[in-house]
Design a protein around this nucleic acid. Structure first.
Length: 264
DNA sequence: CCCGTGCCCTGGCGGC
DNA sequence: TGCCGCCAGGGCACGG
């Protein structure tokens, strides 16, 4: 499931591969992946590719094309059109090559905005800052009055953006905070830890090309950070800090791994 | 505003 | 071997 480090990795690859390419047209092969598309992108050039939280932004002349990979979305470059049934959309370039969007679960989404207002409309207008930009005061302000468990709050992209289910577990483990703790009861010291550890974990994951669990890959390159996960997917295995067995529960429908001795 | 629930979607897996 | 049913989960639409 692509989170900040995986999206970062994909964007770096896309920059190398598609900036400067002319899009002859975009073919939507599965309607719901880009349901209100009206063929606006025609003979236009990709000027830039950027990351915004978990979103990939393609800057195409006066348009910004938003792409969210959700669970299993991935990009594949090819010399000719692919007929794989999991390819939901492709960019047909004027040089004859293609950028294909592949998504088995069909959860990913595309959305088109004008460059003048892409930051002033949903979903980007509602996104919180990433761990690299947010301050502990801003975070505490978001936690204030929230009675929900901290694990759930860290997944809310309007609170802090870029964290998904895997890294939320890793951040809370490293910060020694229970996933059940009420967000409003997080202390200043703990907010600082959450931010610092999120940055450290993201940096290390980016260095390792992201986390590959199940199917993630960045244009064919699998990540290696799964080998460095401290709690996620380690149910009944010894805690790397204290040896206590890692527990697995569900919080708001999300699989949550934690050490009930280290995390208070 | 805040919170909880259910939906989207399908490959893979456990159980029998 | 085959089939059934359930699980995985990010973001959003609801209803309370």
């Amino acid at each position: 499931m692509p989170e900040y480090p995986e999206v970062y990795t994909v964007v770096e690859k896309l920059k190398e591969l598609v900036i400067g390419k002319n899009i002859k047209k975009i073919n939507v092969l599965y309607k719901n992946v880009f349901y209100d598309y009206n063929g606006e992108i025609k003979n236009l050039t990709i000027k830039d590719v950027r990351q915004f939280g978990k979103y990939i932004l393609f800057f195409i002349d006066n348009y910004v094309l938003l792409s969210h990979l959700r669970m299993e979305g991935k990009y594949i470059i090819s010399d000719k059109a692919l007929s794989d049934k999991h390819i939901l959309l492709n960019f047909e370039f004027s040089d004859g090559s293609y950028l294909n969007y592949h998504d088995v679960r069909k959860f990913g989404k595309f959305d088109l905005r004008r460059i003048e207002n892409y930051l002033k409309t949903p979903p980007l207008m509602d996104l919180g800052k990433t761990p690299y930009k947010i301050t502990y005061n801003e975070l505490l302000e978001k936690f204030y009055k929230r009675t929900t468990k901290i694990k759930q709050i860290l997944l809310e992209q309007d609170v802090i953006s870029g964290i998904g289910n895997i890294y939320a577990d890793e951040i809370l483990f490293k910060s020694e905070i229970s996933p059940f703790k009420q967000a409003s009861k997080i202390t200043k010291c703990q907010a600082v830890k959450i931010i610092e550890n999120a940055k450290e974990i993201f940096d290390k994951a980016i260095k390792n090309g992201g986390t590959t669990i199940y199917t993630y890959s960045a244009l064919g390159n699998s990540g290696h950070f799964q080998n460095y996960l401290d709690v996620h997917l380690r149910e009944n295995m010894p805690c790397k800090k204290c040896g206590n067995l890692i527990k697995k529960v569900k919080i708001n429908g999300r699989g949550t791994y934690y050490c009930d001795r280290c995390q208070k």
